[in-house]
Amino acid sequence: MYVDDAVALVPSMPGRRVLLGVAGAPAAGKSTLARSLVDGVNARLGADTAVHVPMDGFHLSNVQLDRLGLRDRKGAPETFDVDGYVHLLRRLRATQGRTVYAPDFDRALDEPVAAGIAVPADARLVVTEGNYLADDGPGWHEVRDLLDELWFLETERAVREERLLVRHVTGGRTEDEARAFIEASERPNALRVEATRSAATRVLRLSDGTR
């Protein structure tokens, strides 16, 4: 789904690169959509034509969150290295002729992993996804102008929060702890993200179980 639209964005000329952003509230299904787009583009146009670079690689480490007193707000805008993310997007737009390395996020560890993703020099489409790609807060307001297109993935709140509950319980929280975290952090974050919908190029609504 939507692979045709992603293929249409890929530049025909070597040496050019397009950045496609996918925004949406927590657990809307952004990562699954991004991976399916990348896999679909590469199946049609060749390996490494497209690469998935999630914003989640710029989560602050748990050590830094503890130092800042933000561990219980993990996932909020202030718990990311937005300047690092913006710098990476600029490098991806400007760098040609060599590989660019980007951080990834390990959900099992609940930590970012440095240089976990390689963007080959000849990659022509980068699909990046995250909550705050359309946000107008400090630092975040620079992201939108670095993207060629921004899609917003809209998913019903009940569906998202059920996914979040499973995610947090699987990650080690009790069900009560997970529900409390969703109410205190994930839900306010989602409301902030949903308020940025109008800044997107297009709004997608999936009903196929995308996670």
Rank of each mutant, 00 (worst) to 15 (best):
H59F: 12
L68P: 03
D48V: 00
H59N: 05
P77M: 09
L89V: 07
H52K: 03
G69N: 08
L89R: 08
P54G: 13
Y85K: 02
V51F: 01
Q64M: 13
L68V: 08
D48K: 08
E78C: 11
P54S: 14
D66Q: 15
L88K: 09
G75A: 07
V63C: 05
F58S: 01
Q64G: 03
E78Y: 11
V63M: 09
L70Y: 05
N62P: 04
F58C: 03
R73D: 09
D81W: 04
L70F: 03
S61F: 04
D66Y: 10
V53Q: 12
R73P: 07
R73H: 14
G75D: 04
V82R: 03
L65D: 01
L88E: 04
V63H: 11
T79N: 12
G75Y: 04
P77R: 02
D48Y: 00
D48Q: 02
D66M: 09
L65C: 08
L88A: 07
V63K: 10
T49F: 06
A50V: 05
G84P: 06
G75R: 04
V53A: 15
V53D: 14
A76F: 10
F80H: 06
F58P: 06
V53E: 09
D83K: 00
V82K: 03
H59D: 04
G69F: 15
L68T: 02
V51M: 02
A47G: 04
P77K: 10
G75V: 11
H87R: 13
L68Q: 09
T79E: 04
N62F: 05
R71I: 14
T49R: 09
D48F: 00
A76D: 06
G69I: 12
R67D: 14
R67M: 12
L65N: 04
A47K: 12
L70Q: 13
L68I: 03
H59G: 02
E78D: 15
D72G: 11
N62E: 13
N62A: 12
D56P: 14
P54F: 08
H87W: 15
E78R: 12
G69E: 09
V53W: 06
R71W: 00
D83Q: 05
D56F: 12
A76Y: 08
A50E: 02
Q64T: 13
L60F: 13
K74H: 08
D48E: 11
S61G: 15
L89A: 06
R71N: 05
T79I: 12
H87Y: 13
D81V: 03
S61M: 08
G69V: 15
D48T: 01
L68W: 05
G84I: 00
